[in-house]
Nucleic acid binder design. Structure first.
Lengths: 114, 114
DNA sequence: TTGATATTTCAATAATCATCGAATATTAAA
DNA sequence: TTTAATATTCGATGATTATTGAAATATCAA
């Protein structure tokens, strides 16, 4: 993972509404949540939510898929793990560091559970 | 860890020079590095480095201590672990997630190895 | 095709952030 | 005490980011 991708990911998360959205998506798992529901839950207008979701998507932290009229977003765990790996690279000069992983959902859950 | 602290930490890391500084400090471990060396290594003037280090310190990601004329900065691993915990809270609805930890340096290394 | 639903794009404004030279501490050595 | 070394604060400028209503796009149902 290159530095500028990591910066994009961190910047995407460093904002009140986007951080809240990302956590909702992390908790929702592979099933994801549609844009409108997210706007309601967070309490921002749809156009604002769209702006924030675009940032998260552009940063690679979330993926999107259309389902009828809704566009459903889900967290991409691999991206976050990549960020973590970058931050902890050669941690403490390589002494006694535990491997990290933000989430490893079951494979059976990863395919269109929506 | 409250949301606004997490945002501060993420925002602190979401900047080219600060991200580079943080990684240098993570790799340096408890020994840390002085402000001037960091400015040289990153290639920014001392006043800019001071600005960035203040952001990292304010976010709780680094600690500082004076050693003679130098002020030495080191990464605070606990802070980063707190951010990770917050991001992954109730991950996937609590299914099959590994515990996370960015770094667990040996206790013998944690006391003034400078 | 018409109307309703779900979301995004556009555009203008407000607010926050990064940069760095000059001036100001603080510490130590001559 | 004078000088040098190390670092921070200040202040002005330029750049980036967030917000949201209105308009546009896409989907579906009658």
């Amino acid at each position: 993972m290159d530095p500028s991708s990591v910066i994009k990911a961190l910047a995407a998360l460093a904002q009140e509404h986007r951080l809240a959205v990302y956590r909702l998506l992390v908790q929702a798992g592979p099933v994801g949540l549609p844009s409108g529901i997210l706007a309601d839950r967070i309490g921002v207008p749809p156009s604002s939510m769209s702006f924030h979701l675009a940032q998260l998507a552009n940063a690679g932290l979330v993926t999107q898929r259309r389902q009828s009229r809704s566009i459903i977003y889900s967290a991409d765990y691999d991206a976050m793990n990549g960020v973590m790996d970058f931050l902890t690279e050669n941690c403490c000069g390589g002494i006694s560091c535990s491997p990290i992983s933000i989430c490893a959902p079951q494979l059976s859950e990863q395919k269109d559970v929506a």
